[in-house]
Amino acid sequence: MSMQGPLATSRSATGIPTGRLGVWWLLASEIFIFGGLIACYILYRLNNPWWGGEAVFTKVPAGAFNTFVLLTSSLFIVLAHDAAEKKDFDRAFKFIWYTIGGGGVFLLVKYYEYSSKLFADDPELLKTPLTNTYWSFYYTATGLHALHVIGGMVIMALISFDLRKGFNPHRVELIGLYWHFVDIVWIFLFPLLYIAK
């Protein structure tokens, strides 16, 4: 079905594509949301030096592995974008699904981390959102981030099929911007929650 949107959608007085402006707006709002959360965490952390003793129970190798996974998936989405620009849609499709795969591995590792804390038999290792405020932050921040990972994966899956038919290739760039953002949030969360002791 051919549909024609309003003419407004095709104008570009600034020279910047409207879709990109839209995603920038979305990311800016997200920066303020995550920024607020992270600022709260840092303020609490400064007032509660003993939280370092809690951070010991995070699994740094798992977190480091996940950082690597996310960074690699970001590379894949760049390659997908590159392929889409060159109108090689099959290749772009493939790299989008590699990116989604990266998100999947990330979530599996998260699942392992969460379950080993939430369902630990050893009371020493049992850490839930109610254990103390450090763990409340840990679950809230990483949980919100994981939701963003899932959201990104769903959107990528949706656009990948259109893309294979050659529709809306510019969307690869837009989701790529978003995916880099999700990546960067993790790069803040990892040292703040896992490494700082």
Binding site: A28, S29, I33
Partner: peptide, 13 residues
């Protein structure tokens, strides 16, 4: 947009 972000985080908390 710039002011409500942190409060959205706060509302979640």
């Amino acid at each position: 947009m710039a002011s409500v972000g942190p409060l959205i985080a706060g509302s979640v908390m």
